[in-house]
């Protein structure tokens, strides 16, 4: 197997990946598992609706001027006291919950995608450098990874978040919460990528074709991007999918804890936080619908991640 890999040219590596994908268990198992299909449909619908929020939402929940406190805490329209204008009711500010939900999902998904992107960029980059150059880079990066791994991701995210708050101060933070969250979550998740990529880089580095390429003077970056990167694509995709679910949960948790997005620009977690205050008085819908979407989204992305992992590489289990 490895012998054949060694003889292949740069372009054909990608080509082989693609063929492996098409022939693999992937498409077959996708069609076979109803659960995976339901999860995929749910995820696509929620993400699609969230992206299209400005087009399909009945109102603009970010326009505070349009809110009327008289409309506050109206139950869903099918319940007594419901209002056909507000399909699933309103929150304490008189905001249409459906609109808030759509915009909130957009923010949640946006933060999570950006954070996972940042983690991949950071982790893959550091992993390549660590594995390919070794020496002091490797020691520094992997020690840092070890130290960070001692701490749960949520704690790292909270600390970065708290530090950012202290540095920026409350005024300057306004509007920047989105990126503070992206950085907090992104910094919490890079380690796994770095370790995976480093391990594969080490493996590849000692193969004959890499040695040969080095001898004839192919630059290091070209070797890393041409050969090493394609080989880690599978594991990175799997980790990224599973991380996306984690990032969604982490964002929601930070917002729920009150250190994420503010009530004026709510994410799903913020909406749950708002709703939690009214749960005791029986206004369940403010917490129920955001919670349901959040749980459904995290669950479906998790199911997709699990399936991807099993289908791409059973050994990762």
């Amino acid at each position: 197997m490895s012998l054949r890999d060694d003889r292949e040219g740069f372009g054909s590596v990608w080509n082989r990946r693609w063929r492996a994908f098409a022939d693999s268990h992937l498409l077959y198992s996708f069609g076979r598992s109803k659960l995976v299909m339901v999860a995929a449909v749910f995820a696509v619908v929620v993400i699609g609706a969230a992206l299209a929020a400005p087009l399909i939402a009945p109102t603009n929940p970010l326009d505070l001027a349009s809110l009327d406190l008289m409309d506050a805490r109206i139950p869903p329209m099918w319940m007594e006291g419901g209002d056909p204008r507000f399909v699933i009711g309103t929150d304490d500010q008189g905001r249409d919950l459906l609109s808030a939900l759509l915009y909130g999902a957009q923010v949640s998904i946006g933060v999570s995608l950006c954070a996972v992107g940042l983690a991949i960029l950071l982790g893959v980059g550091l992993g390549l450098v660590s594995g390919y150059f070794g020496g002091i880079f490797d020691t520094l990066i992997m020690r840092a990874a070890d130290v960070q791994l001692t701490f749960p991701a949520i704690l790292t995210a909270l600390l970065v978040n708290g530090a950012a708050r202290a540095v920026l101060g409350d005024q300057r933070l306004q509007g920047g919460e989105f990126w503070v969250l992206v950085v907090s979550i992104g910094l919490a998740f890079w380690v796994q990528y770095a370790r995976t990529v480093r391990a594969s880089t080490l493996q590849e580095r000692h193969k004959d074709y890499v040695q040969a390429a080095r001898l004839i003077g192919v630059p290091a970056w070209k070797i890393m991007f041409g050969h090493v990167l394609p080989n880690v694509l599978g594991p990175v995709t799997v980790i990224a999918t599973i991380n996306l679910a984690l990032a969604i949960i982490t964002e929601a948790t930070l917002s729920f804890l009150g250190v994420g997005l503010p009530p004026t620009h709510p994410s799903l977690g913020t909406l749950v936080r708002i709703g939690n205050d009214f749960l005791m008085s029986g206004e369940w819908w403010i917490v129920f619908f955001p919670g349901l979407v959040l749980a459904g989204l995290a669950l479906s992305v998790n199911i997709l991640g699990d399936w991807l992992r099993d289908a791409l590489n059973p050994k990762l289990r």
């Binding site: 679910a245 749960l279 959040l294 749980a295 995290a298 669950l299 998790n302 699990d306």
Partner: peptide, 13 residues
């Protein structure tokens, strides 16, 4: 799998 996917605070609520 549902247990892993549900955020802790939602379970609490």
């Amino acid at each position: 799998l549902i247990g892993v996917s549900l955020p802790t605070f939602l379970i609490g609520i």
